[in-house]
Design a binder for these strands. Structure first.
Lengths: 103, 103
DNA sequence: ATCATATATCGAAGAAGATCGATATGTAAA
DNA sequence: TTTACATATCGATCTTCTTCGATATATGAT
């Protein structure tokens, strides 16, 4: 057994952990599943089809953005979100590599 | 935009979601990081090095097992846990495939 | 400048998860 | 069978997350 329980978790794991938390929630999964490949959606569009209040959708979008899963750009009054495919692929790749090498 | 927000999430996503939830917690990450490649650990060993009460460790191990991340076998009085490497790899592979095909 | 719209933030209430000590269950040893 | 030990479960408490409506901020239109 490794004696590393109390030592700090590597920094890049924090980022990975945020992604796991973000993807572990059903509402956030539903939001992500809305996007067509490459598509951008704004908060209003997402809130319109969701079952949640706008402010709640906004909260989930912030969480997804903080995790790096979504990126966003404000254009005029609206904020457009899109999936950061490469970030997701890189996180999954890192985890897969870790599992292959260390389990 | 896909009009699927209210439709049910595919069954295999439930399993994936459990894994994300399991891996999103820092205590559970620390537990997983204890395992040497292929190693088996029992509850007592894990509780001994952790900062949590035995019953709490037991709770987290149950959660990890329910997610498929750990498997376990009772031998005598002890329950031995090990990481299900292939299950983890398969989940990560499915997610990666989905991202590649649908984002 | 005023108004309307889009989004974010705030604060409170409710829900869900984590945590612990105590108790229950199962197993082996004495 | 009694005792000791390993683990799981229970019940209560505490903490964190979720959710909403209200308010604030920013932008564009009138």
């Amino acid at each position: 057994m490794k004696n590393n329980y109390r030592s700090s978790i590597p920094e890049h794991w924090h980022a990975t952990s945020k992604v796991f938390i973000a993807l572990g929630d059903e509402h956030r999964q539903r939001i992500l599943l809305l996007f067509e490949p490459g598509e951008r959606l704004n908060v209003g569009q997402i809130a319109a089809v969701s079952t949640l209040a706008r402010s709640t959708v906004s909260h989930h979008l912030k969480l997804l953005r903080d995790a790096g899963v979504l990126r966003s750009e404000k254009i005029g009054k609206e904020v457009w979100f899109w999936i950061d495919r490469n970030w997701l692929l890189s996180v999954m790749g890192n985890v897969t590599d870790y599992i292959r090498e260390s389990t």
